[in-house]
Deep mutational scan, measured.
Amino acid sequence: MQIFVKTATGKTITLEVEPSDTIENVKAKIQDKEGIPPDQQRLAFAGKQLEDGRTLSDYNIQKESTLHLALR
C-alpha cells in the first residue's frame, strides 16, 4: 500500500509499505529515499509519536495515510 510522509520542510515522500511493516522498517525506507538516518527520525500520526517496534497496523495506519516526520 502507499503512504505519504510529510517532512518538516513541507516535502511529501511517497512510500510503498505493508500494514505489517514496523515503524523501524518505514524509517529505513525513508533513509533509502532521503538519506536521513533512522535514529534522527521521529514519526507521528494523528498526533501520536510512533514507536520503532510497533507496526503500521498497530496504529491503524491505512493506505494513503500521511505520517509526519520530524528530525531530532
Score class of each variant (00 low, 15 high):
Met1Thr: 03
Met1His: 05
Gln2His: 14
Gln2Val: 12
Gln2Glu: 13
Ile3Ala: 01
Ile3Asn: 00
Ile3Phe: 01
Ile3Arg: 00
Phe4Trp: 06
Phe4Gly: 03
Val5Gly: 01
Lys6Ala: 09
Lys6Ile: 14
Lys6Glu: 14
Lys6Ser: 07
Thr7Ala: 07
Thr7Met: 13
Ala8Cys: 05
Ala8Val: 10
Ala8Pro: 12
Ala8Asp: 10
Thr9Tyr: 12
Thr9Leu: 10
Thr9Glu: 15
Thr9Asp: 11
Thr9Ser: 15
Gly10His: 12
Gly10Ile: 04
Lys11Gly: 09
Lys11Leu: 13
Lys11His: 14
Thr12Lys: 08
Thr12Phe: 14
Thr12Cys: 04
Ile13Asn: 02
Ile13Lys: 02
Thr14Phe: 09
Thr14Lys: 07
Thr14Met: 10
Leu15Arg: 00
Leu15Ala: 02
Leu15Asp: 00
Glu16Lys: 07
Glu16Met: 13
Val17Ile: 04
Val17Leu: 06
Val17Phe: 05
Glu18Tyr: 11
Glu18Pro: 04
Glu18His: 10
Glu18Ser: 11
Pro19Leu: 10
Pro19Lys: 08
Pro19Phe: 09
Ser20Leu: 07
Asp21His: 08
Thr22Pro: 10
Thr22Cys: 04
Thr22Met: 08
Ile23Ser: 02
Ile23Lys: 01
Glu24Pro: 04
Glu24Gln: 13
Asn25Asp: 15
Asn25Gly: 10
Asn25Tyr: 13
Val26Arg: 00
Val26Lys: 00
Val26Phe: 02
Val26Asn: 00
Val26Tyr: 00
Ala28Trp: 12
Ala28His: 11
Ala28Tyr: 13
Lys29Thr: 05
Ile30Leu: 08
Ile30Thr: 02
Gln31Trp: 14
Asp32Glu: 11
Asp32Thr: 10
Lys33Glu: 13
Lys33Gly: 06
Lys33Ile: 13
Glu34Lys: 05
Glu34Val: 10
Gly35Gln: 06
Pro37Glu: 13
Pro37Leu: 11
Pro38Lys: 15
Pro38Glu: 06
Gln40His: 13
Gln40Thr: 10
Gln41Cys: 04
Arg42Met: 14
Arg42Glu: 14
Arg42Gly: 05
Leu43Ile: 07
Leu43Glu: 00
Leu43Trp: 02
Phe45Ser: 03
Phe45Met: 05
Ala46Cys: 05
Ala46His: 15
Gly47Lys: 05
Gly47Met: 04
Gly47Cys: 04
Lys48Tyr: 11
Gln49Pro: 09
Leu50Gly: 01
Asp52Ile: 06
Asp52Ala: 07
Gly53Thr: 09
Arg54Met: 12
Thr55Glu: 04
Thr55Asp: 03
Thr55His: 07
Ser57Cys: 04
Asp58Met: 06
Asp58Ser: 13
Asp58Val: 04
Asp58Gln: 09
Tyr59Cys: 03
Tyr59Phe: 04
Tyr59Lys: 01
Tyr59Thr: 02
Asn60Asp: 13
Ile61Pro: 01
Gln62Lys: 10
Gln62Arg: 14
Gln62Pro: 10
Lys63Ser: 15
Lys63Thr: 13
Glu64Leu: 14
Glu64Trp: 10
Ser65Tyr: 08
Ser65Val: 06
Thr66Lys: 05
Leu67Lys: 01
Leu67Arg: 01
His68Lys: 05
His68Leu: 10
His68Val: 07
His68Glu: 09
Leu69Lys: 00
Leu69Gly: 02
Ala70Thr: 11
Ala70Tyr: 09
Ala70Leu: 08
Arg72Leu: 13
Arg72His: 08
